[in-house]
Nucleic acid binder design. Structure first.
Lengths: 198, 198
DNA sequence: CGAAAATATTTACATTGGCAACATCAAAGC
DNA sequence: GCTTTGATGTTGCCAATGTAAATATTTTCG
C-alpha cells in the first residue's frame, strides 16, 4: 500500500494551494484558515511556514492559481470563435461563469485583504487575465469610443461593467434565480455593444 | 467637569457604531474588531452584547449607517441640478467619491462577509441608496436601451459599471494618481451616455 | 421603597496566526 | 560507508479574538 505516512510530505507547497482551493469550494471563505489548510493536507499548522512566509503569502499563491483558472475560463470557447461579437460574449460569459462557480475563490482573488498585489507572480497572472479583456475590447464600438484614450477607456468600461456585475451577483444583490426576471443577465447587457465594421 | 466615568454609558448603541466607523477611517478594516470598538468607547469588550447579538450584527449596523451616508453623498449636488446629463455625472461622482474617501467602510458595506443583507434596516438603507441610481438611469440612452426590460437593464448596467470601477480603484488596480493618465476616470466614461430628447 | 429589568464587568474558553526550540529525513561531501 | 548539513515537519507556547456564563451596578416602575 502506497499510503504510508511519511514525515516529509514531498510536495507540500502545491498541495497547500490545492487544499486551500478545495476548502474555498467546499466550505467557503470564512472557513479558510491556516490550520484548516494544513490539517487537510495532514501536516501541522506550522509546516506551511517552510514554504510561505505567512498566511498572506499562502493566500496570495491561492489567488495566483485562481487568476490562472480565471483566464482559462475566459478563453474557453474563445479560441474557436471568429473575431466579432461572439468573442465579446464568450469572454464576458466566462468571467461571470467563473465568479458564479467559484465565488469564494473569486472574492479572495480580488480583495487586497487577502492577496498581496505586489507579489510578482500574482501580478503576472492577473495581467494575463486582464489581457483577455484587453483583447476583446479592441475595436469595440460604444458611445465612448472616441478621442485619444479610446482603447484604454474601452477596457476600463468593459472591465468595470463585468467585474461590478460579478461582484453584485456574488453578494446577493443580483440573485441567480431572479436574473431572467427582475435582473437581466450580463449577456443581455454586454452584447448591446457592437463592433465596428472592420 | 462633565467627564465623569459612569457605570452606564447612556447611549452606547450609536456610540459603538460611530466608534466602528472612526476606526475604519483611521486604521482600516483590518484593525476593526469587537474589542477595539468597545475599547474606543471605553467599555468592556462584552458590553456591546447588550445591544448587538454578535459582532456581525454590529458590523451590519455600521454598514447601514454607511449606506445612509452613501446615499447622501450621491444626492449631494443632485438636488439643485436640473434633470439631464449633469445629474448622471453628479450621482456617479458621488458614488466614486464616497468609495475613495471611505474605502474601508465601503468595502464593509458591500461584502456579505461582514454585513447581513437579511437585516431589514440594512436592506432598507441599501435600497434607498440604489434608488438614486434607479432615478438617474431613467431616460438614459445607450445601446441597450430597447426592449421590454429596458429600465431594469439600464439600472443594472449603470450600477455594475460604477460599482465595478469603484472596487477596482479601491483594490489598487486603478490607481488614483494614474487616473487622468493611463486610467480614465469614471467621469470620462459615464458621460458618454446621453439622455434622450425629452 | 423595593422588585425587576436593563446595562456593564469579570472570568473563562475555544480558535486563530505566529514564533522558538527541537525532531526527522534526504542529499551532498569526504 | 559515514557523517554532516540543510531542508522539512512537529511540539509547545503566546497574544489576540469572539463568545458565553456568572456577577455587579444602575435605572425603571409598580
Amino acid at each position: 500500500m502506497p499510503k504510508e505516512k511519511k514525515y516529509h510530505h514531498g510536495d507540500l507547497k502545491p498541495a497547500l494551494v490545492e487544499a486551500g482551493i478545495a476548502i474555498l469550494e467546499e466550505e467557503g471563505l470564512d472557513r479558510l484558515s491556516l490550520r484548516a489548510i494544513a490539517g487537510r493536507v495532514g501536516v501541522s499548522h506550522t509546516a506551511p511556514r517552510n514554504h510561505f512566509a505567512n498566511l498572506r503569502a499562502l493566500l496570495t499563491a491561492i489567488g495566483t492559481e485562481g487568476f490562472r483558472r480565471h483566464a482559462a475560463a475566459m478563453r474557453e470557447g474563445l479560441t474557436e470563435t471568429s473575431p466579432g461579437p461572439e468573442r465579446l460574449q464568450a469572454a464576458t460569459e466566462g468571467y461571470i461563469r467563473f465568479a458564479r462557480r467559484h465565488p469564494a475563490l473569486f472574492e479572495l482573488m480580488f480583495s487586497k485583504h487577502y492577496c498581496d498585489f505586489d507579489d510578482p507572480d500574482l501580478l503576472a497572472a492577473a495581467r494575463r487575465s486582464y489581457a483577455v479583456l484587453e483583447e476583446i475590447s479592441r475595436g469595440l464600438d460604444w458611445p465612448g469610443a472616441e478621442g485619444p484614450d479610446r482603447q484604454l477607456r474601452t477596457e476600463t468600461m468593459l472591465w468595470s461593467l463585468v467585474h461590478g456585475y460579478a461582484l453584485l451577483a456574488l453578494n446577493g444583490q443580483i440573485r441567480e434565480g431572479e436574473e431572467r426576471g427582475r435582473m437581466p443577465w450580463i449577456t443581455e447587457v454586454v452584447p448591446r455593444f457592437r463592433y465596428e465594421e472592420a
